[in-house]
Each structure stands twice: as C-alpha cells, then as structure tokens.
C-alpha cells in the first residue's frame, strides 16, 4: 500500500536537491506543450524523455515505473477505443461486428485516438516526473509564495500530514479484518469496509479535536510560518531546462498537423 505513494520515492530521490521552482516550471511547460500539440510526435517525445529522466536521473526502478503507468493507461485506452469507433468520417479502415452490430473505425478516428493516447501518456509521465522527484513539503512553501490564501495552504498542509496517519490506521484495520475473514464474500466485505470507514471517521474527528487543542495551546492564530529552502539553480540546469522546453516547443511546431498513419 505504502509503496504506491509516490511521495515516499520523492523523498529519497537524488533530484530532490534541485530547485523545486525549476522542476515545477519545467513540468508545467512540458504539460502545456503536450496538451496543445496537434500531432502525436511531440507528446511521444516528451513521454520518452520524461520517463528517461525519472528512471535514469531520478533512479526510479524501471519495473516499478512500468507498473505505475499501467492503471492510467487502462482508462485512457477505454476512452480512446470509444473515440476510435465513433469519431471521424470518411472511408473505414477496418470494422468488426459485435453482438450483431458492426463497428467501424475511420482513418480520422484512428488519428485522433492515437493523438489523445499520446497526450495522455505524455501528461502522465510529466506528472510522474514531478511526483517522483519533488516531495509535497517542498511545494507548500512554493504555494504560499504564489499568494494562495493562507487558510487554503494551511488546510492542504494539515490534510497532507494526516493522510499518512489515517492510511496506517486504515491499512492496519483492513488487515485485522481480513485475518478474521471479514472480506469473505461481497456482503461481508461491504459490512467490514463500512465498519472500518466509520471507525476511521470517528478517529479522525477525535484527532481533529485534539489537534485543535494542541495548536490552541501553542498560540495558533490561523497562520503557520513556513521556511522555504532556497536552492540554488545552476546555470547549466537552467540552460538545460530552457533548451529542453525550446526543443519540445519547436518539435510540436514543426510536426503540427502530421499524423503517424
């Protein structure tokens, strides 16, 4: 369960020491280029380079990275199948018959579904790069710097802190229930799950009351001060990031409108 939290890997990442502002800007730029691109070439290039950066520079095990990428891809594939079968006009390139109905795919539909699929892979790999190299703690200071309302950032920080506490409680309770055959069969599973969730809510409520008392006792006035660690941006890093963004923008511009089919 805990392995699936990308934040744990980010805390151990060698790229953690790099400036979080630079990483955020780089990922934002790559996301935008990917989603704006009109051909699948640039998104696929971004996906490859971002995955390479996560695995080689970020030292994420390649097998684990593959496993991470699988569930988002399933959703994307489901959606693209719909686009493939229902979108576009013109001559059909193939058709299948299912349950007495025939579904056909046109070249236009195929093109669009490849484009959407490539954009999804590109966006997901950008997110993974950010998630696997930048721990949330580093982003909070940045959020305050962006002038988001204090109460909002504070709420985010407290939510973040307690996610890990409750996850432990939830996983522990679920294991204990499973040991007592609580998840044998659908009805029993539903019962056990609700019981666990109810307990979790009550625990979180009581914890919230305790947290308030504890913070009040320490003169909490609705503002936690944060210390943002200023990390130096090396000239090469800045140049590299700018070069990368320029390269993907140029690639997206040159290949605009081209298709792989």
């Amino acid at each position: 369960m805990h392995n699936s939290l990308l934040d744990d890997l980010a805390l151990a990442s060698p790229l953690r020491e790099k400036s979080s502002r630079l990483k955020l800007a780089l990922v934002a730029a790559a996301l935008l280029v990917g989603v704006m691109s009109t051909s699948p070439v640039a998104p696929l290039f971004i996906a490859l380079t971002m995955s390479f950066a996560s695995i080689r520079l970020g030292k994420v095990p390649a097998g684990f990275y593959g496993k991470l990428l699988a569930p988002p891809l399933v959703f994307a594939l489901l959606g693209t199948v719909v686009i493939l079968l229902f979108f576009g006009s013109g001559p059909e390139i193939f058709s299948i018959s299912l349950l007495g109905q025939s579904f056909g795919a046109t070249a236009e539909g195929a093109e669009l579904s490849i484009l959407v699929l490539s954009r999804t892979i590109s966006g997901t790999s950008c997110l993974f790069f950010l998630a696997l190299t930048t721990p949330m703690v580093e982003l909070f200071a940045l959020l305050k710097g962006l002038r988001l309302p204090d109460s909002f950032v504070e709420l985010s920080m407290m939510i973040y802190r307690y996610i890990f506490v409750f996850l432990e409680v939830a996983v522990g309770t679920t294991h204990a229930q499973a040991m007592r055959l609580g998840y044998d069969g659908l009805l029993r599973s539903i019962r056990s799950f609700s019981m666990m969730a109810g307990t979790l809510f009550i625990r979180s409520w009581e914890q919230g009351e305790r947290l308030y008392t504890a913070m009040d006792a320490r003169c909490y006035d609705g503002r936690l001060s944060l210390f943002e660690e200023k990390r130096r941006v090396e000239v090469q890093e800045l140049l590299g990031a700018c070069g990368y963004v320029a390269a993907i923008t140029a690639l997206a511009y040159i290949t605009r409108g081209t298709s792989l089919i």
Binding site: L155, M158, F166, F193, A197, S204, G208, E209, G222
Partner: peptide, 29 residues
Amino acid sequence: RETLPLLALAGAFIFVLSSLKLPSVTGSC
C-alpha cells in the same frame, strides 16, 4: 477557529477513503 483542523481531518479522511479499494463487483477501478 476549531473549524480548520476539523476540516483538514475530514479532507484526509476523504483522501484515505478514496485511495482504498471498495469491495469490487466488476474488478476494475
């Protein structure tokens, strides 16, 4: 003033709940 901590805990609760798998019927997401 006690609202903020309580809301935060509720948010964490929603996150944890949504990251757990429901007893599934069809097997997917």
